[in-house]
């Protein structure tokens, strides 16, 4: 644990002694702040407009109209910024030769990877931590958002960000080039984001497809042709779909497990790649 923390701490120092952390956090705050302000302004003008129409006025809800879109825009900004945060993590170590220092020290590759992951996760926590001020600001006004759903939403974007970092770290382990790592991570994340978009048209069941590729053997074994459709399956893999319930304020273990699975799977694959690259020199 001491080794993991030492590596994480060094990573954090590097972020904050270079302009990177300030640029990333600054851009994130500027964009998310602007978007939050825009929906807040819209909400307040609607409130003014319908102030004397109780039927409409009672339907205006600050959680739905301000807090929920805020998490959506944060997720989109993460999609663009997290590859920048993760691109140098392992790629840079390989390029400058410091990987040789880390992997000849009495520590395991798992500790190195976990340390780097936690270092980047710290930066994510800083970004999100500062944005806690947004809902706190409107707490002071008469439009009080519900605390529970807001916190659930924060948990959602935190988990989303953590899974993005794990994917970015995985891509960073595959190359020595930071640009390649960033573009690769961006592509992988966008793919995971959009993978569910064909869900509505992919109405064949998974079993039906399996029957096709096994030339009917599946059906002969009476494994059944019903069950979930291909679209359902793709939807379950989508990082954006799983955020929906968090934004609504619903805490469902299914989604928590999904994001944690992405994290564990990516970190595991990262460790395998780092080990196999040692064999190839």
């Amino acid at each position: 644990m001491r080794n993991v923390l030492a590596i994480a701490w060094r990573e954090v120092r590097t972020y904050f002694t270079s302009p990177l952390a300030y640029v990333v956090v600054g851009v994130f705050l500027m964009l998310s702040g602007w978007m939050f302000w825009a929906s807040l302004v819209r909400f307040s003008s609607l409130c003014l407009q319908y102030g004397n129409n109780p039927y409409v006025f009672n339907q205006l809800n600050v959680n739905d109209m301000v807090v929920r879109p805020m998490f959506g825009s944060m997720a989109v900004i993460f999609l663009l910024l997290i590859p920048v945060v993760t691109m140098r993590l392992l790629a840079e170590e390989r390029r400058t030769g410091t990987a040789e220092l880390l992997f000849t020290c009495p520590i395991t590759s798992g500790q190195v990877i976990l340390g780097k992951y936690l270092g980047a996760a710290f930066l994510l926590a800083v970004m999100l931590g500062v944005t806690l001020s947004y809902p706190l600001l409107i707490m002071a006004t008469s439009a009080k958002p519900d605390v529970g759903p807001t916190l659930v939403g924060y948990l959602g974007v935190l988990l989303l960000g953590l899974s993005f970092i794990a994917v970015g770290l995985l891509i960073s382990a595959m190359t020595e080039n930071q640009i390649v790592a960033a573009v690769g991570a961006f592509g992988a994340l966008l793919m995971l984001w959009a993978i569910g978009w064909v869900a509505d048209s992919a109405t064949d069941t998974v079993a039906y497809r399996l029957n096709q590729v096994t030339f009917g053997l599946w059906d002969k074994l009476h494994l059944g042709l019903g069950g979930p459709t291909v679209g359902d399956l793709l939807n379950k893999l989508s990082v954006s779909e799983h955020l929906g319930d968090f934004r609504k304020g619903l805490l469902d273990t299914e989604h928590v497990v999904f994001y944690l699975s992405v994290v564990f799977f990516s970190l595991f694959m990262t460790q395998r790649i780092v080990e196999s690259r040692r064999w190839r020199g």
Binding site: R13, T96, G97, T98, L101, C105, P106
Partner: peptide, 23 residues
């Protein structure tokens, strides 16, 4: 190693402290 493995963005003393920890 042949190319000294140094984090060029660190100061000398903190770098050595870091290496001492992971060693």
């Amino acid at each position: 190693p042949e190319h000294p493995p140094l984090y060029t963005d660190m100061l000398v003393r903190p770098f050595l402290r870091f290496v001492a920890t992971i060693r």
